[in-house]
């Protein structure tokens, strides 16, 4: 076991293959990655390069075909769906491109959700505080369909941070927003991230957003390369 206890996220020789019909496709070539606590990492790359697949493996939503993934020293690759669920509940927060709020719950109830699942008795108060932080306290009782895209993503951010996750995964968090709203949302994301000292792993097309992260990784045809800020401008 070569895991480094100082790393929050580590993967070794992780691959992913998908079988469609008789063909087997290699989505990810063997990938190694080490992320320290508090680091912000952007994974950039063209569509179909495999970046979202990698994100889903890192977050424990899916399992690799080969290789090892450790999140907070937990061997995700060995765990079944239920165990990975428990790890996510404890350590992970999410922000999705399509927001994925629960339509039948109010903004406040959506934000409360992770805290409630974690058994936090102050869930409601903390959710109100979070909404305050993202500037939506007055929209607490609104349902997602009554909110604009930017507002929905702010609610999603509040939901992601409420249980102070150790690591936050964001999948194209500004992808569905116009550039101005996108800016507001990303600003909020990094602010909260800094306040809570959360590790952030985000997948994006948006170079400006990627540039705000400490590290940029380039995904190309299933291979991951560390890149410098300047190079990111080129991609």
């Amino acid at each position: 076991m070569l895991q480094d206890p100082d790393l929050i996220l580590q993967c070794r020789q992780v691959t992913k293959q998908v079988t469609t019909g008789e063909k087997t496709l290699d989505i990810l070539q063997p990938i190694d990655l080490r992320v320290k606590p508090g680091e912000t990492v952007a994974i950039i790359g063209a569509s179909g390069s495999g970046k979202t697949t990698l994100l889903s493996l890192l977050a424990g939503l899916d399992t690799p075909s080969q290789g090892e993934i450790y999140l907070k020293n937990e061997p995700l690759h060995k765990y079944d769906e239920e165990q990975r669920s428990a790890i996510r509940a404890k350590h992970v927060g999410f922000i999705f491109q399509s927001f994925l709020l629960i339509n039948s719950l109010t903004a406040l109830e959506n934000v409360m959700l992770p805290a409630e699942l974690a058994g936090d008795e102050q869930a409601q108060q903390r959710a109100m505080d979070m909404l305050e932080k993202v500037g939506l306290a007055d929209r607490a009782e609104h349902f997602p369909s009554q909110l604009s895209g930017g507002e929905q993503q702010r609610v999603a951010i509040a939901r992601a941070f409420i249980s102070s996750p150790d690591i936050l995964f964001a999948d194209e968090p500004t992808g569905n927003l116009d550039s101005k709203t996108g800016e507001t949302v990303s600003k909020l994301l990094f602010e909260l991230n800094q306040q809570q000292g959360t590790t952030l792993v985000l997948v994006t097309h948006d170079n400006e957003l990627a540039a705000q992260c400490q590290r940029q990784l380039l995904m190309h045809a299933g291979e991951l390369q560390e890149t410098v800020k300047a190079m990111a401008e080129v991609v």
Partner: peptide, 16 residues
């Protein structure tokens, strides 16, 4: 379905 997926991604168990 989307609700179940969100619940699960946040860490709810199948039993839950």
């Amino acid at each position: 379905q989307p609700m179940v997926a969100v619940y699960k991604s946040i860490g709810a168990s199948s039993f839950f």
